[in-house]
Structures are given as structure tokens and as C-alpha cells.
């Protein structure tokens, strides 16, 4: 696995618009961006409406994922190129999600919508429809997904990487400064976690930093390369971005995303919580 296998540049993407077997998918939290302009030919996935179970707090199941991808016209052997706003947070989340259900060839557009727009590349608002497929998903690959029991057991045993801002980590804020203050019952972080905000993994144009810079960043923060790693944030989207950097770019083998993240952990009864800045 190397950077070229998992990331594509905006230039490559523009050259491959409409190429057979390549499907561009925009993933956002707020789907209105797609509706006003998207990469030509790209289909839309709404992070909340399409990927979350409408009743339970969980993902749509395997059959639901098959139905979604079939309806979007994505075939099992297509190369899926994901991109989105917010520095690719939700596109990275979708990347992890597609891997979870075993999609073979999936890539992230480096820099997402931001880089595409900054380069002045074309956007169009026309509706896109692709002929329906019969998509077949696999069972979830749980080597990529951490649940709460495993997270509690990981305290002082595995790398826990908290990718939220320092103020969320220390317990000053419950959510990023520009998002609603909601959800978890208490503030703080999981004991023994290191704090490496997701933004440190990205350049200002939204592209990922180089492998050398990333390796140095996590090493400097105290990541033990000999141990398994679990990344978390508030709702699992920013930590997908860091999961991507650690597993897909740097090639660490045992890296999971804890999608329950602080929203779940900070509401659990009886688990240890720490407050205050990182030592």
C-alpha cells in the first residue's frame, strides 16, 4: 500500500472525469454544496441521510449499503474516488466506511472540494444519474472499527489518538468552536490518549502532509509504533481523516476508528475520564 494507491490528485481526477470504471462521489455533512456545484459526473452521498441507520445509532446494514451503492450506479469493480468539503472529513469517513464493507478500489481526492475549487477546476450543477447496478457488499471488516469495550481496554495499553482540538481534549469545549455544543454528558478525554488535532495532518489547501511530516508528527506526539492504535474524535469523522493518515498513508497495520467517539464515551457510566491539557 502506498500513497498512490489511496490518494489521487486533483489533476489526475480532472483527466479521468468520465473515464470508464471510475466513479466520483461527493460526501458532505451538508449536501447543499453538491446541489450548487459538483465535480462533473459525481454522484452524491449524504453522510447523515444515506450512511446512518434511521432508527438505531449505527450504520446502515450490509443490505442497506448494497441498496445505496446499487442505486448510485456503483459496481463492485469500479474505482470510487471520494471527495468533499470540510477538508475531506466526511469523504475520509466514507472511505473508511467503504473499506468496512469491503469495497476493493477506493481512493480519496487529495484536498477534496477545497483544493478543486482553489485550482479553479470545473464544477457543474446538473443532476447526475448512473444506470443502477447490483452491488454486493461484504460483512463489516471489524479489524477497522473499534467499539467501546475495546477502547476502555486500550487505556494505557494501545495508542489512543484524540484528534479533536486542544480545547475539546482538555474539557473546555464539548464540540468544535463553530459547531453546536451538544451530545456527550461530560467533557474531557480518554485517559492515556495523545492529542494530535486532525488539522496537523493537512496542509492549508486541504491536501495531506508528506509521509515524512506525518510520521514525525505522530512520533513527536508519543505514538508508539509497536502498538495498535485507535483514533477517535467527537462523532468519528475527523478521526477517519487521521485513521486514513495512519493506516492508509503511513501503513501502520492495526489502526481502528472508534466511530462512537467522544459522543458515546463521554456519556458512558463508570468509565475513567481525564480533563486538562496533554502533559
Amino acid at each position: 500500500m502506498s500513497r498512490e494507491d489511496v490518494l489521487v490528485t486533483a489533476a489526475w481526477s480532472e483527466e479521468n472525469l468520465g473515464a470508464p470504471g471510475v466513479v466520483f462521489v461527493e460526501v458532505d455533512e451538508d449536501a447543499s454544496a453538491y446541489d450548487t456545484g459538483h465535480i462533473p459526473g459525481a454522484v452524491k452521498v449524504d453522510w447523515r441521510k444515506d450512511l446512518q441507520d434511521p432508527v438505531r445509532r449505527d450504520f446502515i446494514d450490509r443490505a442497506g449499503f448494497e441498496k445505496l451503492l446499487s442505486a448510485r450506479g456503483i459496481a463492485n469493480d469500479d474505482t470510487v474516488v471520494l471527495y468533499g468539503g470540510n477538508n475531506n472529513w466526511f469523504a475520509a469517513y466514507a472511505y473508511w466506511y467503504f473499506k468496512l464493507y469491503g469495497h476493493e478500489s477506493v481512493k480519496l481526492l487529495d484536498g477534496g472540494r477545497k483544493k478543486w475549487e482553489l485550482d479553479g477546476r470545473p464544477l457543474e450543477a446538473d443532476p447526475v444519474s448512473r444506470p443502477e447496478t447490483t452491488y454486493s457488499a461484504k460483512d463489516q471488516d471489524l479489524s477497522l472499527r473499534a467499539f467501546r469495550e475495546e477502547v476502555v481496554e486500550a487505556i494505557n495499553a494501545k495508542n489512543l489518538v484524540d484528534v479533536r482540538s486542544p480545547d475539546e481534549f482538555s474539557g473546555k469545549l464539548a464540540a468544535p468552536a463553530h459547531l453546536p455544543q451538544e451530545q456527550a454528558q461530560v467533557k474531557g478525554h480518554i485517559p492515556s490518549a495523545i492529542n494530535v488535532p486532525w488539522s496537523k495532518a493537512a496542509n492549508e489547501d486541504g491536501t495531506f502532509r508528506s509521509d515524512e511530516e506525518l510520521r514525525e508528527l505522530y512520533k513527536e506526539a508519543g505514538l508508539d509504533e509497536g502498538k495498535a492504535t485507535i483514533a477517535y474524535c467527537r462523532i468519528g469523522e475527523r478521526s477517519s481523516h487521521t485513521w486514513f493518515a495512519l493506516r492508509e498513508l503511513l501503513g501502520y497495520s492495526d489502526v481502528k476508528n472508534y466511530d462512537g467517539s467522544w459522543t458515546e464515551y463521554g456519556s458512558l457510566v463508570g468509565v475513567p475520564v481525564e480533563i486538562g491539557a496533554q502533559n
Binding site: 477545497k114 482553489l118 468544535p176 468552536a177 463553530h178 492549508e204
Partner: peptide, 27 residues
Amino acid sequence: FTAEVVASDAGDFRFFAAPGDWTVRAL
């Protein structure tokens, strides 16, 4: 880095912040 927003069609933006010195950078 602390936060990022997209300016409106009229170029307007807004942040909520703590007391201090801030740099606002537009790309």
C-alpha cells in the same frame, strides 16, 4: 489552525472566538 468557514457569495464570514490575538487567512 482553529476553524475554517466558507465565505458567503458577498464575501462575508464570521467566527466566534476566545479573547486574544487572531490571524484570519483567506484562500
